[in-house]
Nucleic acid binder design. Structure first.
Lengths: 219, 219
DNA sequence: TAGATTGTTAATCGATTAACAATC
DNA sequence: TAGATTGTTAATCGATTAACAATC
């Protein structure tokens, strides 16, 4: 017996773009818009209409040649595709400046994907409630992750501690890590890691900004 | 008369990886390592040796078949390639939780690419010095950017303000923007934008973490 | 020297773009 | 209906990987 779903592999970029589409569509919906064409969405994000149509095929919702895509239904379809059928709790480790800013950033933004617990090894932070989220000691990580069924980890500890904390998260059962520490993590193949390397990004901006400025200089 | 440099176009990913290589090599150098082979570096970052060799070709430094790459010289070569011949000052706009965390993060990290001025429209923040950096009102943006010759912008204002601030940065002469606001910016073609979209990244982690966990469940 | 690694080209892979019949 | 847009396949593009002669 073969698998029930066709099980098409969707690229990381497509998933990222779907996340972006949904947010833009939500805004449009809030503004009272009812439907949208692929080329209109493309103009908003600076992409091509063909790419958006291909991305939207993945979520299994069809538009109409005469009316484009129904925004409300499209948002729901993207949600069905992107979101888990259940709530996914997030564990954040490292309640420093960056960790607290991230907690503030995500606070109240996505209820189905909210930071449920924070962890640090600073005794002064343990048991405090920061941006609506309780802070625990690292030694409680495994217990809390399992008790609360947390599935996603955010890593914002200093580089030296990152690999150790990543391994603790994996041992606790976490299968997806958003890593802000500017070093590569070694994790098993069944764990997904997304790196946000601010130093790398800033250096890219400095490099290409210079190139672009030169371009202008050369007319 | 043709251009003097061959002017090979280097991909964004290569530039990003060079930034990472340099950081890892710096750490190795601090640990007393003298030289390294491409496959050793590959093992550290989880890439392939061939890719690293190809990336390093771009910086114009050659290794030796017998000794690999001299770490000290390679770090210098990557620096020559990646860094501007002059200091590049950075203007940060939006001194909220995230903005302050970013200021703290970059404080003292790269002297040649340091945040030189911060901007906000909150009168309470203006003229304060935060993480060693003075905060100005938005209305002073253009003047300060030009006086100090700032070249790079970091945008961490709320989404609604992002497009307006981006345009102010461009008018002030900024040609590279690191954008933390979770919306696409419309800028002229001679301006380079790198987006750090934390919401998108977290949703990717939630999605693929789930897939990876399922993979395990299916053996 | 022998042998592992390098620089560099050719083959592969995957994602984007173009094209177009089907559709409302 | 006529016509613009859709879903979907084919062509293109670019980046990664494999291969291998040159090299220390």
């Amino acid at each position: 017996m073969s698998s029930q779903k066709p099980k098409v592999v969707i690229s990381e970029r497509t998933i990222g773009r779907l996340s972006l589409y949904r947010r833009l569509l939500n805004d449009l919906q809030a503004q009272g818009e009812r439907n949208i064409y692929s080329h209109e969405l493309a103009a908003m994000i600076g992409g091509t209409a063909a790419q958006i149509r291909r991305d939207l095929m993945a979520v299994g919702y069809s538009g109409s040649p005469t009316h484009g895509y129904d925004i409300r239904e499209l948002v729901l379809s993207i949600g069905n595709f992107l979101d888990a059928p259940h709530m996914q709790g997030v564990a954040l480790v490292g309640v420093g400046n960056l960790g607290r800013a991230i907690m503030a950033f995500f606070s109240g933004r996505r209820p189905r994907l909210a930071i449920a617990a924070a962890f640090d090894n600073d005794p002064y932070k343990i048991n405090r409630v920061i941006h609506g989220c309780r802070c625990y000691g690292i030694e409680d990580l495994s217990r809390i992750v399992q008790e609360q069924g947390l599935e996603v980890g955010i890593l914002c500890v200093p580089s030296q501690a990152a690999q150790d904390v990543a391994e603790r998260l994996v041992r606790a059962g976490i299968r997806g890590i958003l890593n802000f520490a500017p070093i590569p993590l070694r994790v098993p193949a069944n764990v997904y890691v997304e790196d946000i390397d601010m130093t790398m990004s800033l250096e890219k901006v400095a490099y290409f900004g210079r190139q672009h400025a030169n371009k202008e200089g050369l007319k």
